[in-house]
Simulated scan of single mutants.
Amino acid sequence: MTATQILLLGDLILDVPDADHWLSGLAPTLRAADLVIGHLEVPHTTSTEEVPGDVPAPGADPAHLDALARAGVSAVSMAGNHMMDCGDQGLADTMAGLDRNHIAHAGAGPDLATARAPRLIPGGERTIALLSYNCVGPELSWAGEDKPGCAYVRILPEDGGPSRPQANLVTIDPASQALMEADIAAAKGKADLVVVALHKGITHRPAALAPYERPLSAAAIAAGADVVVGHHAHIARGIEIIDGRPVFHGLGNGCVVTHALSPAQDHPARAEWVERRKRMFGFEPDPAYPLSPFHPEAVNGMIGQILWHEDGRIETGLLPIWFEPPGRPVMAGEKAGDVVAYIRRIGEAAGLPPLQWHSKDGVSFSLG
């Protein structure tokens, strides 16, 4: 039996036309894998409802979920700060669209119990469990006993206020961490491999990890997670190996093409955020990237790669990707070495333990 190849994608936002085109630079690689897990950042719905609590993202065309399936995406985490931006209907439409395309999903649902439940995914004769948690708020997006929303881990801000994406989030709420740990332990009893997706971290800032990120990831591994994958920052982060288990602290963007971050728009809250985030995080987007106007270093991206061997051994690696103007992701090709050097450098800058990097074929890299 050959190893099962699992690929891990960062944030997915496809709210401009021709989703197949924007995914086409990655699709052949994704379709060749046994399982592809991405993070669905925004609802896919025709609902125009806007829920307060964060700068609202517009709903993407539900048909773009069909494009994700055609590109090879087989599962998505859903717990994030924008999943409830179009209200309960937006979430319901998104889940229906994923089900229509046979894309497994975890982390959101009509109530908290459903949102916290692991999604069990067949992997040949073995089973993979996917869990997903929003660590950044806003609290209005969180599911309740009878309230639709996302699973979450409460992170307490320095100012003592509610959890919200742009707060200085520093301390893990112990009770909330304990619930996550119980979920992971329960999933471990049902599956052979447990993947935990955490929507976490500081947006748009190279290298930096918030104080809670490494402890929370380590707690997930200690509870039984085999793989921890982070997203939300819209820029890549470093990689850490804990007890032989990988933690991708931030995959950066998987495929993000949107008009919602353009300064040329008539939505006041979004236009204000476009300018405010540049001041907050000290960057000016490259004008060549109007559909993906992130930090200039965000062009360095990766697809996480897990080779899950028959004996249970996990081999960790990555596939470097690059974002070509105006925001389309492609396999890095001749830029692969530069991308890996960047990811290695930001990991060291964040104080992560050094890793050994091995180029297998100039395209994929293993580490340990």
Rank of each mutant, 00 (worst) to 15 (best):
M1V: 13
T2C: 04
T4K: 13
T4I: 13
L8I: 07
D11C: 09
L14A: 02
A19F: 03
H21C: 08
W22D: 07
L23N: 07
S24N: 06
G25T: 04
P28G: 09
A32S: 12
D34G: 09
D34E: 02
L35E: 06
L35T: 07
V36Y: 04
G38S: 00
E41Y: 02
P43F: 01
S47F: 08
E50F: 12
V51S: 02
D54Y: 14
D54S: 13
D54N: 14
P58H: 08
A60N: 00
D66S: 14
A69Q: 13
A71V: 04
A71W: 03
V73A: 01
S77H: 03
H82G: 01
M83W: 04
D88G: 10
T94L: 02
A96K: 00
L98T: 01
A104N: 05
D111M: 02
P118F: 05
L120H: 01
P122G: 02
G123Q: 12
E125M: 07
R126A: 04
A129C: 01
G137W: 11
G144I: 13
D146M: 10
P148F: 00
P148Q: 10
C150F: 06
A151E: 04
Y152K: 11
V153Y: 13
D159G: 04
D159I: 00
P162Y: 12
Q166I: 05
L169D: 03
T171I: 13
I172A: 12
P174K: 12
A175K: 15
S176N: 09
Q177G: 03
D183Y: 12
A187M: 08
V195C: 03
V196I: 10
L198F: 11
T203L: 10
A210I: 06
P211S: 01
I221N: 00
I221C: 06
G224Y: 05
V227N: 00
H231F: 11
H231N: 05
H231Q: 15
H234Y: 10
H234E: 02
I235P: 07
G238D: 10
I241C: 02
V247L: 00
H249Q: 06
G250V: 10
G252L: 09
G252P: 04
N253T: 13
G254M: 01
H259R: 15
P263I: 05
A264R: 13
Q265T: 11
H267Q: 10
A271E: 15
E272G: 05
E272K: 13
K278E: 14
M280K: 12
F281Q: 08
E284I: 10
D286S: 09
Y289R: 11
P296V: 14
E297N: 15
E297V: 11
N300S: 08
G301Y: 08
L307V: 04
W308A: 00
H309K: 06
H309Y: 10
E310G: 14
P320L: 11
I321E: 01
P325M: 01
P326G: 07
R328Y: 03
P329Q: 07
V330R: 14
V330C: 14
M331H: 12
K335F: 15
A336G: 09
G337Q: 14
G337H: 15
V339Q: 08
V340A: 12
H358I: 11
K360M: 08
K360T: 08
F365N: 00
S366W: 02
S366P: 01
